[in-house]
Structure formats: structure tokens, C-alpha cells
């Protein structure tokens, strides 16, 4: 494997990924600068988390890492861990909504993005998939869908299906972690923290089940990596065991961390007292609901 500059070139160039990542960073930096000029501070760790999240997504989708992920099951699992858990988690824990809104040119926001976000064509499907139970089922369901042996086989051989797989993981990751970490505060009419913790908690068990199964089984479930050739000679069972561990432990850990973050916010906001939270709420809520258009 060549780890030179060649490694950083996309294996399968997708302009959409490049454009979206560059756009996200450009809009964020513009918003950050404009806010700083207006005297609004954005925590350094937030900026770092957001940028790191976007860069991580870009790296696993648009460098030769993608090639490695196609030829080693555990690297594929790591790719999905980043697309579905880590990168969206980092992006959403940064609460980038206000910064991104500030980064979008005013006219574009008012004339185009706001009406789009409020149009029924966007609102209705968005509300439907962001129902807490639907979101939780979708989050776990996608992991199971793409790991279903028959589907996984075709997804690894067929380029369009492979792209749909990675896109669906990234988009669902963003939607899910947005709902958990970044959506409107409960005090402003958003999803109650208790619900969020419940949904997160409910996703842990099925993630552990599939991860542990792959980490412990002696049966080779995914033959496609042997068919196409692994990156270096490790046994299929070892590859599968490491892949299972990645699906099991860091994924479940991320979810637990997510729960702790939500719990922390819950306690903090309860501590403020309901009256003050409600007084502060609508403003924050309004900004947030406009944030991720």
C-alpha cells in the first residue's frame, strides 16, 4: 500500500462529496468569522470538532482509504463507524447551526433556504423520519440492512449500490445525531431529553448483538472479501472478529457517550429552573430550528 500523496487522492472520485465537504467548511468558516466580527464567541473545541468531523467524512469517502475499506472487512466497519457514528457525532456536538446560518449569505437564506426548509415537501418527510422511534429504528436498521450477507455481497461488488450504502450511512448518521444532540431544546418545544436517552439506550442492545455475533462466530459470513482479495493475508475469521469488535465496542461506546452528553444537558437545564429555561428557550430554539436547513 502506498501511503504517499497518492493515498490522499480519491479512489473513486465523487464530485458531490468534494463539493459538499468544501461547502460545509467554507460556510462554517465564513459564519465563524462574521460572528467573531460581531463579537460572538464560538468555543475552540466546537470549531475543531466540526472541522474534524467533516474532514473525517471526506477521508473515508474520498481517499484511498475507500479502496482499503473495500478489501478488508474490519476497515469497512471502521469506515461505517466513522460515517455513521464518529463524524456526525463530532459535527453535531459542535452545535454548528448558528455558525452555519451566519455563514450563508443573507439573501440566499431568506429567499431560498428558509422557504425550502418550511415547504411541506421538506417538512413532512423530515418530521416523519425524525420521529424518535422511527429515527432509532432507522439508525439500527441501516446497520443490519447493509450487514445482511446477501445485500452486503452485492453492495461490495456493485459501485452504485456501494455508493448508496455509504451515502445512506452518512446521511442517517447526520440526521440521527442532529436529533439527539443538536435539535431544538425541549424547553423550546423540541424532543424531550428523556426520549433522546431512551432512543439512544434502545439502539445499544441491537448494536451489541450484531457486533458480538461477528466478533465471536466461527462462521465466515462475508465471502466477498475473499472473492475480491484482502489487502494482506489475515484469515477471514480474524478479519471478521476485528470488524465485529469495531461494530460492537466503539459503536456502543459512542452511543453511551451520546447518552451522557444528553443527560448532562438535561441536568444542567433542569438546574436552571423551568422558568428561566423557558424564558431563554424560544430564542435559542428559533435559532436552532433555522440552523440546519
Amino acid at each position: 500500500m502506498n501511503f504517499g500523496p497518492y493515498f490522499l487522492l480519491p479512489y473513486e472520485f465523487t464530485p458531490t462529496v468534494l463539493v459538499l465537504c468544501v461547502l460545509a467548511i467554507a460556510v462554517y468558516l465564513r459564519g465563524w468569522l462574521r460572528r467573531r466580527r460581531a463579537g460572538i464567541k464560538t468555543g475552540g473545541w466546537r470549531v475543531t470538532a466540526f472541522l474534524l468531523g467533516v474532514v473525517l467524512m471526506y477521508v473515508v469517502l474520498q481517499t484511498h482509504y475507500d479502496y482499503m475499506g473495500q478489501h478488508m472487512f474490519f476497515l469497512h466497519r471502521l469506515q461505517h463507524l466513522i460515517l455513521h457514528h464518529m463524524a456526525p457525532f463530532l459535527i453535531m456536538i459542535a452545535m454548528p447551526g448558528a455558525v452555519l446560518v451566519a455563514g450563508v449569505p443573507e439573501r440566499l437564506r431568506v429567499r431560498f433556504l428558509r422557504p425550502l426548509a418550511h415547504s411541506p415537501a421538506v417538512r413532512i418527510p423530515y418530521r416523519a423520519i425524525q420521529q424518535p422511534i422511527v429515527a432509532g429504528v432507522l439508525f439500527v436498521g441501516l446497520i443490519y440492512l447493509w450487514l445482511w450477507p446477501g445485500i452486503h455481497f452485492y453492495a461490495m461488488l456493485n459501485v452504485p449500490l456501494y455508493n448508496v450504502m455509504n451515502w445512506s450511512m452518512a446521511v442517517d448518521g447526520l440526521l440521527f445525531w442532529y436529533l439527539m444532540l443538536c435539535s431544538t431544546r425541549p424547553a423550546a418545544g423540541g424532543l424531550h431529553y428523556g426520549w433522546r436517552i431512551l432512543v439512544l439506550g434502545a439502539t445499544i442492545v441491537p448494536q451489541i448483538v450484531i457486533g458480538a455475533y461477528l466478533a465471536l462466530t466461527r462462521v465466515e459470513v462475508y465471502h466477498v472479501y475473499a472473492v475480491c482479495g484482502r489487502l494482506w493475508p489475515i484469515s477471514p475469521i480474524t478479519d471478521q472478529h476485528i470488524g465485529g469488535l469495531i461494530t460492537w465496542i466503539p459503536a456502543a461506546m459512542m452511543t453511551v457517550i451520546g447518552m451522557l452528553v444528553v443527560l448532562g444537558r438535561w441536568i444542567r437545564e433542569e438546574g436552571i429552573g423551568p422558568d428561566r429555561a423557558r424564558a431563554a428557550g424560544p430564542n435559542v430554539g428559533k435559532e436552532d430550528s433555522n440552523a440546519c436547513v
Binding site: 500500500m1 473495500q70 475480491c228 482479495g229 484482502r230 494482506w232
Partner: peptide, 24 residues
Amino acid sequence: RYRVAYSYGPPDENGNYLVNHGSA
């Protein structure tokens, strides 16, 4: 095009080396 990987192992003292590749 057919999503097949191949790579070369390090050569031994006789210059012989292994080639890893997909079996499809």
C-alpha cells in the same frame, strides 16, 4: 473494474515472493 485486490509479499533470500490476489 472488478474490485479485485492484489499485492506482493516481501522477497525471501532467493528473490522469491508471494502474490496475494482475489480468487474470483
